[in-house]
Nucleic acid binder design. Sequence first.
DNA 1: ACATACTGTCTATTTTTTAGACAATCTCAT
DNA 2: ATGAGATTGTCTAAAAAATAGACAGTATGT
Lengths: 192, 192
Amino acid sequence: MKIVVVDDNPAVRTALRLILGNEFGEIVTSGDPRLLPALLRGGDVDGVLLDMNFNSTSLDGSDGLFWLERIKEMENPPAVVVITAFGEVSLAVDAMKLGAEDFVIKPWENDELIAKLRGAIERNRMERRRLSAVSEAEALGQRESQRQQMTLEQVKMEHVKAVITQCQGNLSAAAERLGVNRQTLYNLLKKS
Amino acid sequence: MKIVVVDDNPAVRTALRLILGNEFGEIVTSGDPRLLPALLRGGDVDGVLLDMNFNSTSLDGSDGLFWLERIKEMENPPAVVVITAFGEVSLAVDAMKLGAEDFVIKPWENDELIAKLRGAIERNRMERRRLSAVSEAEALGQRESQRQQMTLEQVKMEHVKAVITQCQGNLSAAAERLGVNRQTLYNLLKKS
DNA sequence: ACATACTGTCTATTTTTTAGACAATCTCAT
DNA sequence: ATGAGATTGTCTAAAAAATAGACAGTATGT
């Protein structure tokens, strides 16, 4: 498990590194959210702890929301738990709407933080699975529409190969399931 | 558009009915969340405004969360905007995690409430579409796996019919696209 | 080691596909 | 309406493919 912690306060970063280090595998910390794209590019990060209040200029969390959005528009984004000193409901709701998995208020309780982070990663995994089902739907749909442009020969062969695979290469069984003579199946395979 | 408003305060119900009546089509109000299953059974409700604090016994909103969960475990749940007098971040986060589309704090601002309700319904529609893509993926997957149990003959005929349909019954064109002789196509059609 | 099932290959027969041709019908733009 | 061009239904003869059946050799599992 790899966790990225982004908070502009070095003390917070150190504290979080210690706390989370025991529970999760690798902890990477950064004080600058602009490094997030680079840190996440590898695709091997499971969760991000993202502070909402950078550089004390804008305390409304809009800076944090901006980076949350950048993370969540990635291809396969990690789970994000948002962390903030100001427990504003509207900020929490906006963060959740942008796809944050959970929301923690400073000062945090260690056990709760760890639990939320774990839950967030799990939650995000489920979501990824669902999304991959969607893209699979699209892929299947494409295949389905492609099929209608294929020649009969191509359709036959595709099905033949699928059934053979399903029969683990047992040609006799495949032939029977296909409803054709075993020699016919041999002939079909010779051609291609 | 049909909106259901659930709030134990009759004054709030009246106010909401008036405010929302102009913007949305049909407004149904209820003081008892236990009526929710019945109210939503028709499947024609677009959005629910759900109060979190019933009967003042439990002010933590757990009652409201319970009903939110009941709504969201329905087959095709409407959008839910949660409304509460106590702006607790943890409550907002929990509500969002359970699938609420947005969160409003009393006293509300009319324009904001309407905007959030509209946004929630839109948001929910998108989500429904995504989910139907998932179930379509499953359906396609089933067809895909069924296909592997079909005989070659069945697969051929299914494809032949699909292509003929696509060619709007033009057999010559279908035969060409299928890569077979026109007479062959005739023969195939005679058999079935 | 034994029985069973699968493979690769063969033969002869039956079935299907094919190209080509024909008149009849359909379609559509002039 | 009419004529060109495409489509249909049907036919023939030749080419191609599928079929049942048989055979020895090779896994496979008990």
